[in-house]
């Protein structure tokens, strides 16, 4: 009985190393998941390193060779080596971008849902571990492993992604690439963990928790992709500058300003004018327009965008984690009071 109430009181005696024992028990319970995670990390790292080094080298040599022999191949590069290289890049990016869903599925189903369903959570709660500490261990140990694993993948992925610019025309704002190239990768993975744990606690069952966690994480990552451009102030330029945006800029909108001073978005008038100022002027005059403008994110916004999104996603993760603790506390306190 006291173990059930313990979450509402300070633990009377702190045995040194108790936290370590709890962490060890979490690792022991989910040893196969740990092995799977390690194997996945090793496989991803190996593939990305291959793609960065020999994969890129062979593919690029092969493409140049083809180009030398046949001018057509310069415009439509192909061949088995390029195909292998691009598959490796696409596949690893896909896996890294969707790791949060995998983490959420596992956390909802195996980490929490199953334990509540078959009663082993109650076993832990009667082994001198308060429910709150049980949940803390369930969150902390995987959080550490997930963070470390993803954090190690990010620089490797960046190397591979930036290296592929010439051959694959990879963009810094590509949705999957963006999610794999910076701190948001860690944030989404941690968010997946927290959302999974919450789903597991809410449903208390393995398979429904899995479904809910994956669906919610899918929605969260999708919303992130959707609203990413709004997470940092954009740059707006007018006149001739709007016709030649800086290299690698993510163009968001362009439009015109009429003679009456009305700003019209989503309008391509006069964009076909070559960027000479005179040509633009004549086009504007011809169409009764005052000016043209364009809104975009330059590549230098990569890190501000990354960090803002990281903060928002981490806040969602913290919210989910807090909700888990509140939910668990309310539930176990209620059952403690009933005893």
């Amino acid at each position: 009985m006291t173990t059930l109430l313990a979450s509402t009181r300070p633990a009377p005696v702190r045995v040194p190393g108790a936290a370590l024992g709890l962490a060890r028990s979490v690792v022991r319970l989910h040893r196969s998941a740990l092995w799977f995670w390690l194997l996945l990390m090793v496989a991803l790292a190996a593939t990305m390193l291959w793609a960065y080094g020999p994969g890129y080298g062979t593919a690029s040599a092969d493409v140049q060779d083809q180009c030398r022999r046949d001018i057509e191949a310069c415009h439509f590069p192909g061949g088995p080596w390029l195909s292998r290289y691009s598959t490796a890049v696409a596949l690893t990016t896909l896996v890294v971008a969707f790791l949060p869903l995998l983490v959420a599925a596992w956390a909802g189903a195996a980490l929490v849902g199953r334990e509540l369903e078959n009663g082993t959570a109650h076993l832990a709660w009667t082994q001198s571990v308060s429910p709150a500490r049980w949940l803390a261990a369930k969150l902390a140990v995987p959080a550490l492993l997930v963070s470390v694993g993803t954090a190690l993948l990010i620089p490797l992925h960046r190397l591979m992604w930036d290296g592929g610019e010439n051959l694959l025309w990879t963009d810094w704002f590509d949705a999957y690439g963006f999610r794999s190239n910076g701190t948001v990768a860690v944030a989404y993975a941690l968010c997946g963990l927290a959302v999974g744990v919450l789903a597991g606690l809410v449903t208390g069952r393995t398979l429904p928790a899995l479904g809910v966690a994956v669906a919610v994480m899918f929605a969260i990552t999708h919303l992130g992709d959707q609203y990413r451009p709004s997470m940092w102030p954009t740059v707006t330029v007018t006149g001739a500058a709007s016709l030649s945006l800086p290299d690698k800029a993510l163009q968001l909108d362009r439009g015109v300003i009429t003679d009456e001073g009305v700003r019209i978005g989503n309008n391509m008038a006069c964009t076909t004018a070559d960027s000479s100022v005179a040509d633009l002027r004549s086009c504007l005059a011809h169409n009764d327009l005052a000016d043209v403008w364009a809104t975009y994110h330059p590549q230098s916004h990569f890190w501000p965008l990354q960090l803002t999104e990281t903060g928002i996603v981490l806040a969602v993760a913290a919210l989910a984690a807090t909700a888990s603790f509140v939910l668990l506390r309310r539930r176990t306190a209620a059952s403690g009071a009933a005893v």
Binding site: R254, N266, N267, M268, A269, T271
Partner: peptide, 12 residues
Amino acid sequence: ACARTGGLCRRQ
């Protein structure tokens, strides 16, 4: 409404 310009408007 944006027939005259097409392009991005159409894409949207």
